[in-house]
C-alpha cells in the first residue's frame, strides 16, 4: 500500500492544544487510511488524541502527516484544509 505525506505549519495561536487536536483526530477518523503525525522525529497515531497531544506542537511548529490506505489522498487534503483553518481555532 502506498504512503503519501504532506507537511503543514501549525498557525493557531495556542498550538495543537486539546481542542484542535480533537478536530484533527475526528477528521482523521473519518477515513479508512492509517494516519500518522510526525514532529521532530516523534511519531503519533493521527487517530489518537493523546498521541497527538504528546507531540506538543506549539504555534510555528511543522508537522508531517502521512496517510496509508485507499483514501489516503482525501485524508491528507481534509487534514491540510483543517490546518489552514487553524484547526478550527478563532486565532
Amino acid at each position: 500500500m502506498e504512503t503519501i505525506e504532506a507537511t503543514f505549519e501549525v498557525i493557531n495561536e495556542l498550538g495543537l492544544h486539546a481542542r484542535p487536536v480533537s478536530r484533527l483526530v475526528q477528521t482523521a477518523a473519518r477515513f479508512k487510511s492509517e494516519v500518522q503525525v510526525e514532529r521532530e522525529g516523534q511519531v503519533a497515531n493521527g487517530k489518537s488524541v493523546m498521541g497527538v497531544l504528546m507531540l506538543c506542537c506549539p504555534k510555528g511548529s511543522t508537522i508531517t502527516v502521512r496517510a496509508t490506505g485507499p483514501d489516503a489522498q482525501a485524508a491528507l487534503e481534509a487534514i491540510g484544509e483543517l490546518a489552514r483553518q487553524r484547526f478550527g481555532d478563532p486565532r
Partner: peptide, 16 residues
C-alpha cells in the same frame, strides 16, 4: 462541552 468532547475522544483513544 468542548472539553468534554476531548475527554470522550480520549476514552476511546487507541493508546489507552
Amino acid at each position: 462541552s468542548l472539553i468534554l468532547d476531548a475527554h470522550l475522544l480520549m476514552l476511546d483513544d487507541v493508546l489507552l
